[in-house]
Simulated scan of single mutants.
Amino acid sequence: MAKDAEGLDRIDRSLLRLLTQDAEQSYADLGRAVGLSPPAVHERVKRYKATGRITGVVAQLDPAMTGKRFLAFIHVNTTGWGKSEALMQIEELPEVEEIHSVTGDTCMIVKVRMESTQAMEALLARLYALPEVISTKSYVALSTYLERPVQPGISDITHRPDC
């Protein structure tokens, strides 16, 4: 079976896609879906974990059920460019879900989730206490229409040049 540039074949992409939808599926169910025996699926999943393709299996929590309905993205401008030990103290803050170094008119984007605007204000105060933080710009999410894990392979949607 042909493998793509990432070393995945069609079955690998299908298995990974199924696992991102529900990682609790049995190897037998996964095998039926992709045409493999349960032991063959188990071996592939072991390989994905061993090679770092699967980095962990976690429960996705409902933010509303955990009291963390407030989602925001904070653009952070710093004195330097790139990651520093002092700046990476941000990852210790429990409200922080993601930190990205980006191009454009800001240095990094931080995804945060918390209980309230008061919690956001306290978080911003902690960010400004870091010596490298110059300024921030916050964007509060009003609604989330799509939030999903990384998807393997290329899209199943065919793009036509006339669209």
Score class of each variant (00 low, 15 high):
145 Y>W: 10
144 T>A: 05
145 Y>A: 06
141 A>L: 07
128 Y>M: 13
142 L>T: 13
135 S>G: 03
118 Q>S: 10
117 T>I: 08
132 E>K: 10
141 A>M: 07
135 S>I: 04
135 S>H: 10
141 A>H: 03
133 V>Y: 02
145 Y>S: 09
106 T>K: 15
112 V>D: 02
126 R>Q: 12
146 L>Q: 09
99 I>W: 04
112 V>Q: 03
134 I>L: 15
129 A>L: 09
106 T>D: 02
111 K>E: 08
108 M>R: 11
142 L>N: 12
106 T>Q: 11
140 V>Q: 06
143 S>W: 06
108 M>Y: 10
129 A>H: 11
136 T>A: 08
120 M>C: 10
145 Y>R: 13
145 Y>V: 00
104 G>N: 09
138 S>L: 07
127 L>Q: 04
111 K>M: 13
108 M>N: 07
111 K>V: 04
136 T>C: 06
134 I>N: 12
131 P>M: 07
134 I>G: 03
128 Y>T: 06
132 E>N: 08
116 S>E: 13
119 A>T: 09
98 E>N: 14
125 A>W: 10
128 Y>P: 00
105 D>Q: 14
135 S>M: 05
114 M>P: 00
127 L>P: 02
144 T>Q: 14
111 K>A: 11
134 I>Y: 01
130 L>F: 03
125 A>E: 15
111 K>G: 01
120 M>Q: 15
110 V>G: 01
102 V>Y: 10
141 A>W: 01
124 L>T: 09
126 R>V: 00
134 I>D: 08
115 E>P: 00
98 E>F: 05
102 V>Q: 10
102 V>K: 14
119 A>G: 02
121 E>W: 06
131 P>Y: 04
146 L>P: 00
133 V>F: 02
140 V>P: 00
107 C>V: 06
138 S>V: 10
114 M>H: 03
123 L>K: 01
113 R>Y: 01
118 Q>I: 03
114 M>K: 02
143 S>Y: 07
115 E>R: 13
132 E>Q: 14
134 I>P: 00
144 T>W: 00
140 V>T: 04
112 V>S: 05
138 S>Y: 01
133 V>C: 08
123 L>W: 01
140 V>M: 03
117 T>R: 14
136 T>G: 06
129 A>N: 12
147 E>R: 14
103 T>A: 11
119 A>S: 13
142 L>Q: 14
107 C>M: 12
101 S>W: 09
